[in-house]
């Protein structure tokens, strides 16, 4: 369904002394999502997860320069085709109700999303009703304003808005942040249902627990680079191959808050060789060479020491 190959995103920015600096929030991102599959994109804040979503939707700011390839159903996405696919074939499930117009009623906004996906008035009204019914939202919720819905209901409203247009690829941006465990689980189970209906789901999150329980595969992102693409169960099975993936997993509370000193490279640092070089406990001389993402076992890893 979606295949991202060696995506990089650069911004040019004017610094203090009127010097133009180039920052690379996304350096080398690759991943693919098949039909009926949930691929979780995990990584710390500032690793470029949200920019990936914006790049796929064609919503990067004007001063962004991208290279690499994004294929949707086998055809490369251009800015024109992205504009045509937004809302119709590719939909965003945003993070919170802040993404809804605060002065417009919820029902209108779901209906509008459905209209924008190319439906006529009557069909759009029907699919709005269906979306409300699917997520057990009462008819009365339609006349509420975004600030009146809370917690779990907000999640369902946002999912309803994104699915009112029958898109094939859904991008869920942090769907569990700030929710209590019960509501978070419910939100994830909605994504699972959508995947089981044959849709492709990109689950952007830093909740690794959530990613591991609901996703089929996980892409681990570090400083705008895919370091590992692996089946989700490899996390619990201890079969992770990249040292950063292991560090991420070991940092969870139930694994004892394992800690690796250092920070991910800044967006304006130039990096040659392994992106994780200066923090990696297993580094050797070989790590100074460029590291391609290569297939190892059932996944892909960007580490020269990884073995199948």
């Amino acid at each position: 369904m979606l295949s991202v190959k060696n995506l990089s995103i650069e911004f040019s920015r004017y610094g203090s002394a009127r010097r133009r600096t180039i920052i690379h929030p996304v350096r080398d991102l690759s991943l693919d999502i098949g039909d009926g599959e949930i691929v979780a994109v995990v990584g710390s804040s500032g690793s470029g997860k949200s920019l990936l979503a914006h790049a796929v939707l064609g919503l990067l700011p004007g001063n962004a320069r991208t290279s690499g390839e994004i294929l949707f159903k086998g055809t490369p996405l251009t800015s024109a085709s992205m504009a045509a696919l937004r809302g119709r074939a590719i939909a965003l499930i945003p993070q919170s109700v802040a993404y809804l117009n605060p002065l417009s009623r919820v029902g209108r906004q779901v209906y509008r999303a459905s209209r924008l996906s190319g439906k006529c008035r009557a069909t759009a009204a029907r699919s709005t009703d269906r979306a409300f019914a699917r997520y057990r939202l009462d008819e009365s919720v339609k006349s509420l304003f975004p600030f009146q819905v809370s917690g779990g209901m907000a999640r369902r409203v946002l999912t309803a808005t994104a699915t009112a247009g029958d898109a094939d690829l859904l991008i869920a941006d942090e769907p569990t942040t700030g929710l209590d465990p019960v509501v978070a689980r419910q939100s994830l189970s909605h994504l699972r249902e959508l995947a089981d209906l044959g849709k492709a789901v990109m689950l952007i999150t830093h909740d690794i627990d959530a990613a591991v329980t609901v996703a089929d595969r996980v892409a681990v992102i570090y400083a705008g680079t895919t370091v590992e693409l692996t089946p989700a169960r490899n996390f619990a099975d201890g079969a992770l191959r990249h040292p950063y993936s292991r560090a991420l997993w070991n940092a969870l509370p139930q694994q004892g808050f394992g800690f690796v000193p250092g920070n991910q490279p800044m967006e304006d640092d130039a990096v040659n060789g392994c992106i994780y070089l200066d923090r990696c406990p297993d580094r050797t001389g070989e790590c100074r060479c460029a590291q391609p993402l290569r297939p190892v076992g059932k996944g892909h890893v960007r580490c020269c020491h990884a073995q199948g």
Partner: peptide, 12 residues
């Protein structure tokens, strides 16, 4: 704003 971003994402 965030709501504008979401509207753009819906194809507006």
């Amino acid at each position: 704003s965030e709501y504008a971003l979401f509207a753009f994402a819906q194809g507006e």
